[in-house]
Amino acid sequence: MPRLRTPAPRTALVALAAGLALTCVATTAPAATSESSAPANRSATALDDTYYQDALGKTGPALKDALHTIISDQSKLSYSQVWDALKDTDEDPANSSNVVLLYAGRSQSKSSNGGDVDDWNREHVWAKSHGDFGTATGPGTDIHHLRPEDVSVNSVRGNKDFDNGGSPVGEAPENTTDSDSFEPRDAVKGDVARMIFYMAVRYQGDDGFADLEPNDRVDNGSQPYIGRLSVLKQWNEQDPPDAFEQRRNQVIFDRYQHNRNPFIDHPEWAEAIW
């Protein structure tokens, strides 16, 4: 698929990091409908020498600020371009005609996207009402947190915060929900946490959008917060990055936004910041 935008200004660094990292990322992901053990992220060393060099040795706010500067250098997609991007980033490794739905976990035809009940649509993992950014170019179109999902399951999740507990979701019973929270299936709990961490670092209120931040509450409404942070940190530990998630990060870096989710490359940075 051709690039949708010209790479961000830091072309030489991006190209070097991509070239070094791409040789190390698994080319064949495990079946994405079941949980898999996480392979060693062998690209991290190469990326530390290039892409992440300004963040090394830092913790807390200093690390968060350094990562914000690094990942804010990106190309941006329109909301309509997100459709085609997700068909690439979330492609089923066992069937190139399909995508894997984040919560439902099923493999579904790339062409069955839309608004009908059994279609898949674009799920904002950081709910777009939490900070009121809608589908605006920027946080509303950032494919590091946009994922394919069944229309009905997406509706059940709505704008709920993340937490443990609840009753099984009818069309995706490996997930549970209650009145104010949603718990994703075990195989993607860490994926969800790392997408939330990415959004909190990428969008800090200096680009016309709200300063997004995880907190340890649920029922955050339209405030620019999402929880529950303590649970998200547990999920990050419980479900480390697998080959599907690592490939997705690399495809976004190489072909679309030209920035990375640092918490996929370095899951331990979540604890170092929060």
Results as ranks from 00 to 15, higher is better:
Glu174Arg: 15
Thr141Val: 05
Phe244His: 12
Pro148Ser: 11
Arg106His: 03
Gly205Asn: 04
Asn41Trp: 12
Asp191Ser: 13
Tyr52Lys: 04
Ile252Pro: 02
Glu268Gly: 15
Ile196Ser: 09
Val151Ile: 04
Ala193Cys: 11
Asp254Thr: 14
Ser97Tyr: 01
Val218Trp: 01
Cys24Gly: 00
Trp269Ala: 01
Arg255Tyr: 10
Lys160Pro: 00
Thr177Leu: 02
Phe263Gln: 04
Arg247Ser: 09
Ser230Ala: 13
Pro168Gln: 06
Val251Pro: 00
Trp120Pro: 01
Tyr256Arg: 07
Lys128Cys: 12
Ser97Pro: 00
Val231Lys: 13
Ala17His: 01
Tyr198Ser: 08
Ala272Ser: 14
Gln238Leu: 13
Pro240Ser: 08
Tyr256Gly: 08
Lys233Ala: 05
Lys128Asp: 06
His124Asp: 06
Asp239Val: 09
Gly166Gln: 09
Ile226Pro: 00
His130Leu: 05
Pro224Met: 07
Ala272Thr: 02
Arg228Trp: 06
His68Asp: 04
Thr27Ile: 07
Val99Cys: 10
Glu245Met: 07
Pro214Thr: 07
Gln234Trp: 01
Asn41Phe: 15
Ala85Thr: 09
Ser155Lys: 11
Asn220Ala: 02
Phe197Met: 15
Gly165Phe: 10
Asn41Glu: 07
Ser36Arg: 05
Thr137His: 00
Thr23Phe: 01
Ala136Phe: 00
Phe133His: 12
Lys189Tyr: 07
Ala40Thr: 13
Lys64Pro: 00
Lys160Ser: 11
Asp88Lys: 11
Leu86Gly: 10
Ala270Glu: 04
Thr177Gln: 14
Pro30Glu: 11
Ser155Arg: 15
Asn98Ser: 08
Thr177Trp: 08
Asp163Ile: 00
Pro61Leu: 10
Phe182Cys: 05
Asp73Tyr: 00
Val201Ile: 15
Leu22Trp: 11
Arg106Val: 15
Gly190Phe: 09
Ile226Lys: 05
Asp180Ser: 15
Asp119Glu: 02
Thr11Trp: 03
Asp191Arg: 13
Asp242His: 06
Ala12Trp: 05
Pro148Thr: 11
Gly131Tyr: 01
Arg194His: 09
Asp132His: 02
Asp186Leu: 14
Gly60Ser: 09
Ser43Gln: 14
Ser37Lys: 09
Glu183Asn: 15
Val117Gln: 12
Ala127Lys: 06
Val153Lys: 10
Gly158Asn: 13
Gly190Ala: 11
Gly205Gln: 07
Trp120Lys: 07
Leu146Cys: 03
Thr141Ile: 10
Arg194Ser: 09
His68Leu: 04
Val125Ile: 15
Asn159Gln: 10
Ala38Glu: 06
Ala243Ile: 01
Pro2Arg: 14
